[in-house]
Design a protein around this nucleic acid. Structure first.
Length: 567
RNA sequence: CGGGAAGUAGCGCAGCUUGGUAGCGCGCAGCGUUCGGGACGCUGAGGCCGCGGGUUCAAGUCCCGCCUUCCCGACCA
């Protein structure tokens, strides 16, 4: 493509609303442009990058046995009522009122794919099948940000596997998992597959593909020793080398702490009475109820955030009334088993012998409550949001937290969707109707250019890896208006390279050299060939590798071969 | 949804305190000089100063309401 013909205008300054480097560079270099908050157009260069990424996904998904199709973006609202997600995902759903009724603008396509494909999957003989699409999704994000990173309209590659059994699902899952590894490898990105929480999607086993980044909105915990890696929402801590409880601690003592119902207030109230406590030596005792309204108490250190196990919900004011022995703000673990309350404690509770805690009496807390002497715990486990330095659940080494961007997510859904949609059945070998065992697999395609740009840039601009670059080679002529020989030469090799199928961007604009160099660096094509009268006279062409900054001279007769091989 | 900041030419910004002919840089058009790392001179085009109302002889500027955008938090496949 000749730049004199290319719809492109680079900008020297980034728009004021661009915070992230990727956002600034993609806008400045003319890859994307904002149309509304969280809504971006892909300009010709940006679309070429998307096309490269889409091709990588198609090749790897196809190789894994998946078949491409295209589902609608408009979904009849009834479909979403069936699975209950009209309510559970209402925060992000955008709807359209049309003559034919109400439609959901698909934020994900589990419902739509089942409704579409189930007529073709009537028998166990038809399974397994994996289908995928690359499609625009809509989510009414509370806060779009960082350019392409979090948008309200975005492109996702999403695949769905259908199997006749749990084991079949697992093998479909592992094929797609491998495809994911291949895809991120080919994008040149550093990434870590981590165990994840399934969130609103539901299901059991699932992995997120995380790319470490300072602008990431997620964190995962990683063990440098054994390789354990899990999203902060799913990460578990292990048991530290335990400290035995000290039964010789001073007697448990009650203190008056009126009006102190938060950790910091209690620390202050006790401190003013000369009792040395800080938030880490105060028990945070939180009461939850399960589906049967049975109460569970969870103990974590006062400076830690509790990670609530599935199936438990915080007590409401009504619940406090019906459990008259629980006083909000003054709950402690002492005597709870007598009340029929199950007491769970984080492993970290084992690391200290004497605790301060609520006294189960309004306006009072106790000090020197000792585990095994003054209170009992029914079960220890991982009940905190994991932090830097917590022991790894596998090997006990210190975990570290890594800030990261979620680039992809894979789920074993099991029967969770099939059970909610009546058409999700097939005839099994024994003649009975069975439900599909499903998996789903999503990659945030329109997010990837931003993730890659975050990783591959320098002060001068973008530095695309070859596999996703909009063009492989850029030809840049110096002062074309005064260098007819160089122009004729460049026209010639431009034609030859195109004949060989090399993707070439040709900066034939009659601008001062500085502007052209700066634009080349900004746009970030991996190989830049600089052609001037001077080089031609010396029989050499200067070639710059954008990624490394390396400059080499290639003799004129070799230049086409060189560029088509390295490009 | 809570807290903060901002909307003036395609982009980046000044002008608002103290009301009186709307400016600068980049970009854009023309002419000339330049030409291996974002050159220079001259000329020119381009504005519902976010929207609506109010105060005033007069509002980009003061007052009220609304809208939009960005940041922090909450939320979140």
């Amino acid at each position: 493509m000749r730049m004199t013909r290319l719809a492109l205008k680079t900008q020297r300054e980034a728009p004021a609303d661009a915070e992230a480097v990727s956002h600034q560079l993609l806008v400045r270099a003319g890859y994307i442009r904002r149309l509304a908050s969280g809504v971006y157009s892909f300009l010709p260069l940006g679309l070429r990058v998307m096309a490269k990424l889409n091709q990588i996904v198609r090749e790897e998904f196809d190789a894994a046995g998946a078949q491409e199709l295209l589902l609608p973006a408009l979904h009849p609202v009834e479909l979403w009522e069936q699975t209950g997600r009209l309510q559970t995902m209402s925060d992000v759903l955008m709807t359209v009122e049309a003559k034919g009724g109400t439609f959901v603008l698909g934020p994900t396509h589990e419902e739509a794919v089942i409704a579409t494909i189930s007529p073709d999957l009537e028998s166990y003989r038809d399974l397994p099948v994996t289908v995928y699409q690359i499609q625009t999704k809509f989510r009414d994000e509370a806060r779009p940000r960082f350019g392409l990173m979090r948008t309200r309209e975005f492109i996702m590659a999403d695949a769905y596997s259908f199997d006749a059994s749990a084991s079949g699902m697992k093998s479909s899952y592992s094929r797609m998992y491998q495809a994911y590894l291949n895809i991120f490898d080919r994008c040149g990105l550093p990434y870590v597959p981590v165990e994840a929480d399934s969130g609103a999607i539901g299901g059991d086993v699932n992995h997120e593909f995380m790319v470490p980044s300072p602008i990431g909105e997620d964190h995962f915990a990683q063990c440098p020793n054994c390789g354990y890696a899990a999203n902060i929402e799913a990460a578990k801590r292990g048991e530290a080398a335990g400290k035995p409880s000290d039964a010789n601690a001073p007697e448990m003592t009650m203190h008056s702490t009126p009006g102190s119902t938060t950790i910091s207030e209690v620390v202050e109230a006790l401190g003013s009475q000369g009792i040395e406590v800080d938030s880490s030596s105060l028990l945070k005792s939180l009461a939850f109820k399960d589906a049967n309204d049975d109460v569970t108490l969870i103990l974590v250190p006062g400076d830690r955030e509790v990670k609530v196990p599935k199936g438990l919900a915080p007590l409401t004011d009504n619940d406090f009334e019906s459990n008259s022995f629980l006083f909000k703000g003054y709950i402690g673990p002492m005597g709870m088993s007598d009340q029929g309350v199950r007491v769970l404690a984080d492993y970290s509770i084992l690391e200290r012998s004497a605790w301060s805690a609520g006294a189960n009496l309004v306006g009072h807390h106790v000090s020197n409550a000792v585990l095994g002497r003054d209170f009992e715990v029914d079960e220890f486990g991982s009940f905190v949001v994991v932090g830097d330095g917590d022991p790894c659940p596998n090997c006990g080494d210190a975990l570290s937290l890594v800030r990261s961007i979620e680039a992809g997510h894979t789920f074993e859904l099991g029967l969770s969707y099939s059970n909610k949609i009546s058409s999700a059945t097939f005839k099994a070998e024994d003649g009975t109707d069975q439900k599909y065992w499903m998996g789903c697999y999503g990659i945030g395609m329109s997010r990837l250019p931003a993730v890659i740009a975050e990783h591959f840039h320098d002060a001068d601009g973008l530095r695309w890896p070859k596999s996703v670059a909009p063009y492989q080679v850029e030809l840049l002529t110096i002062t074309p208006a005064r260098a007819p020989e160089a122009v004729a030469f460049t026209d010639d090799i431009y034609g030859q390279l195109r004949e060989r199928g090399v993707e070439v961007l040709y900066d034939d604009r009659d601008l001062t050299p500085g502007v052209k160099f700066a634009d080349a660096d900004l746009i970030g094509v991996p190989i830049i060939a600089i052609i001037g009268q001077r080089g031609i006279a010396n029989g050499v062409i200067e070639v710059k590798k954008r990624l490394t900054g390396e400059r080499i001279e290639v003799s004129v007769p070799d230049i086409v071969d060189y560029l088509s091989e390295s490009g």
